[in-house]
């Protein structure tokens, strides 16, 4: 039941995308998000969507899985769309006389509003899909490796990059363990007749205590044990540590890098030549 949480879950298959350098994938995601906001018309978005579609096909992650991530933010998407339909009336520069389709007090639906909200919805969906593709195709460990490597320059200003990466990877590593633990504790309390999913709000909050308390205790216990285990192996942090898996930039990464550059160039060119939004 708890394992159905889809956001940020690794999908274990072997593919071109899975083998890419995590650093490149992180840079790709950032650049992709920037490109989404640079794109000023549907052609620009179409280019971005095509690239993402291509990436999904190459990654062997089933489409159903990918869209489950979108389902998670469905409310946000709909909320944005509705808000824009009713309140966006078109930019005066591009829409000299916004064609009003429907009006009621302060609510006004214009053609520009509808087009713009469709535009926003596509942008949001692409954004969420691309982010979840990163976590579907990259293990948490290599993700933090990538982040650590990308943040290395910050060491110059004495920012504890290695420690930050360690905290992140421990946190990520423990999510599934704590989820299992939660499920186990929930089962134990259900076997003692706890009604965890019925009753009013007050009752439900009270019903959570028998699960939260043992979970908290076990998390603290685990933290203690992990600390001891690290001490026992003389863990001293940063500096002299080497990596088990060295990150290397290969021909695959070069191809994707060129693709990314081409995509951004395409989006910029489309913005300059076609300019007008929509």
């Amino acid at each position: 039941m708890l394992k159905d949480v889809s956001f940020g879950q690794y999908y274990p298959v072997d593919s071109f995308v899975h083998r890419l350098d995590p650093r490149l994938k992180i840079v790709f995601l950032i650049a992709y998000i920037v490109a989404l906001f640079v794109a000023s018309n549907f052609y620009g978005l179409a280019v971005c969507a095509a690239v993402l579609l291509f990436a999904i096909i190459c990654s062997h992650v089933p489409f159903g899985k990918v869209f489950r991530a979108v389902k998670g933010v469905l409310f946000l998407v709909i909320f944005t769309a509705v808000l824009n339909i009713f309140f966006y009336n078109g930019d005066a520069v591009y829409w000299n006389a916004p064609a009003v389709l429907w009006e009621w007090h302060f609510l006004r639906v214009t053609q520009a509003g509808i087009v713009f909200s469709v535009f926003l919805v596509i942008r949001l969906v692409l954004l969420v899909t691309c982010s979840s593709m990163l976590t579907y195709t990259t293990t948490p460990v290599s993700l933090t490796d990538g982040i650590e490597s990308l943040l290395t320059p910050l060491k110059w200003i004495r920012f504890p990059v290695h420690e930050l990466a360690l905290i992140m990877s421990i946190a990520l590593r423990f999510i599934p363990i704590l989820m299992d633990e939660t499920e186990r504790i929930m089962n134990a309390q259900k076997a003692r007749g706890a009604m965890l999913d019925s009753g009013g709000l007050g009752k439900r909050i009270k019903a959570v205590i028998p699960v939260i308390m043992p979970l908290l205790l076990s998390a603290l216990r685990r933290a203690d044990e992990l600390g001891d285990a690290m001490d026992a192996r003389c863990y001293m942090g940063g500096k002299t540590r080497t990596k088990y898996k060295k990150l290397t930039f290969t021909w695959r990464d070069l191809i994707v890098f060129l693709l990314l550059a081409a995509m951004i160039a395409g989006v910029v060119v489309l913005r300059i030549y076609l300019g007008a939004p929509l």
């Binding site: 186990r184 134990a188 076997a191 205590i209 308390m213 043992p214």
Partner: peptide, 12 residues
């Protein structure tokens, strides 16, 4: 009745 492994971890 069901007693899980390490039942002491269910005390709250």
């Amino acid at each position: 009745g069901m007693v899980f492994q390490y039942p002491e971890y269910q005390l709250f």
